[in-house]
Design a binder for these strands. Structure first.
Lengths: 157, 157
DNA sequence: GTATTTGCAAAAGTTTTGCCCGTGA
DNA sequence: TCACGGGCAAAACTTTTGCAAATAC
């Protein structure tokens, strides 16, 4: 683990960086770096967006004996540290993703359940209009838009 | 309740109309009109958007002995009949609202949890852009946008 | 060494299911 | 009449909590 090698490339939030960041953030709060915390963060990154259940599943395939309780607790912690955040997609199951990952809004098809990711720039206009109208600042990486996807629309006709 | 007085004001989807519609839709499927079904639909309309729990709570204040199980089953049925639909706002709790009620998108503040309703016209642009880009048709009455409300932003600074 | 974390088990909360009786058409 | 619906109780899940043992620092 080559920690401390971050230097000045602040414009490149890579995988290595996230791991280093985890250690740094934890240490700055007097918290401890553990294998479980690394595994959960790594799983969130690898899966893109996933439920606690799915995260647990993935980790179980890697090492043995990480409890689901720990996954829940760790996700809460990572969210508090603003390393991950969660969205409620589809059927009440919360899905977690990297907090820095502002790369997508979620389109959830209520017919087939498929999740499509789109560039948040599509919502730039709406974001501005909403801000002007209400002062509410949309977190575009945390949008769940429901509707019907192209394929289901076709099937429908 | 003066039902049956609907006459010809078809441009006025009022409370009376919904009740009539319920009876009609049920009958057309060979299903039965019951007090419970009326009560649940009425509660959904009255509350705007509410969880099964809240709906049950309201009904309990009106009549006695309507079971929470029945509320769940009836909401499922009403959704199938396309009289109501549900959204997942905030913390995994599904909230139900009238299906015809396309009058609002939901802004959910992840700090204070408050839900602000805004005109869907604010998303007209995004809707078009998303449709053009992906073919996905946004259900604007079923949007949950997460972010930070004006008050919490102020408090933050 | 010691405070933080984890695992385990049990609790708590929410939603679903099975079964039998009540009721609407 | 008699199939549909509702109430009740219990099951099935998901998420949280308490506590003792393990572990990072």
């Amino acid at each position: 683990m080559t920690a401390g090698a971050a230097k000045y490339d602040a414009d490149m939030p890579t995988e290595v960086e996230t791991e280093t960041e985890l250690a740094a953030v934890l240490r700055s709060k007097g918290l401890r770096m553990t294998a479980q915390r690394q595994l959960v963060l790594e799983a969130v990154r690898a899966l893109g967006h996933a439920t606690p259940e799915q995260i647990h599943e993935r980790i179980r395939g890697q090492v043995d004996g990480v409890n689901i309780t720990t996954v829940y607790r760790t996700l809460d912690l990572l969210e508090e540290l603003q390393l991950v955040s969660h969205t409620h997609l589809s059927h009440g199951a919360p899905t977690y993703h990297l907090a820095g990952d502002r790369g997508h809004a979620h389109l959830v098809c209520h017919r087939c359940g498929r999740i499509t990711e789109v560039e948040p720039t599509l919502f730039a206009n709406a974001r501005k209009e909403v801000a002007d109208a209400t002062g509410f600042i949309m977190d575009v990486g945390h949008v769940a838009v429901f509707g019907t996807c192209a394929e289901c629309l076709e099937k429908d006709q």
